[in-house]
Design a binder for these strands. Structure first.
Length: 158
DNA sequence: GCCAACGTTGGC
DNA sequence: GCCAACGTTGGC
């Protein structure tokens, strides 16, 4: 079972949108970065969990947990000339870009902000989200990092 | 809005 | 293959 972090700009598609989506499920398409593509194609497996992260916003933060409900498959938006994600170099025979489908498992009881995560650099170790100049929209999380971050979320009220 | 980081493109 | 130019990401 693998763990990941998926970034999304809430202005474009945030937790509110995922919550409102049919079946609280969406397809994670339009990723046009090779490293992220490799994770989508080869890394994310059915049943894997991922943090849902809000980026490019006033308070960047992990806000939810999603589950992979369909592992990597070709991102067909690359084949569509009208799509903003169109890429003439990607063909059905030789797809260049991949996507996964995800479903909201639950919202976090509170947002765990990037600022807070930075305070725990030592505990988190080498965490892709905290690397300098990190721009990856799909990144791996170790089991230890996953457990630690979840431990920051308050449990039952009492 | 600014700027650092960094991936991509294209000329040579 | 090098590298400058350029575009995008994303935090602040």
């Amino acid at each position: 079972m693998g763990y990941w972090l998926l970034k999304s700009e809430p202005v474009a598609f945030g937790l509110v949108d995922l919550t409102a989506a049919p079946n609280q499920t969406t397809t994670w398409e339009g990723v046009r970065n090779y490293q992220a593509r490799n994770f989508l194609r080869d890394g994310l497996q059915l049943g894997d969990q991922a943090f849902f992260y809000h980026s490019s916003t006033i308070r960047p933060a992990i806000v939810g947990i999603v589950e992979v409900v369909r592992a990597g498959y070709p991102d067909e938006t690359a084949f569509d000339p009208i799509s903003p994600y169109y890429d003439a170099a990607s063909t059905p025979d030789q797809p260049r870009w991949y996507r996964v489908d995800i479903r909201l498992q639950r919202s976090l009881r509170r947002a765990i902000t990037l600022a807070e995560l930075k305070q725990h650099r030592d505990a988190l170790g080498d965490f892709a989200l905290l690397r300098r100049g990190n721009r990856l929209s799909v990144l791996p999380v170790t089991a230890a990092q996953w457990a630690f971050i979840l431990s920051l979320e308050p449990t039952a009220p009492f």
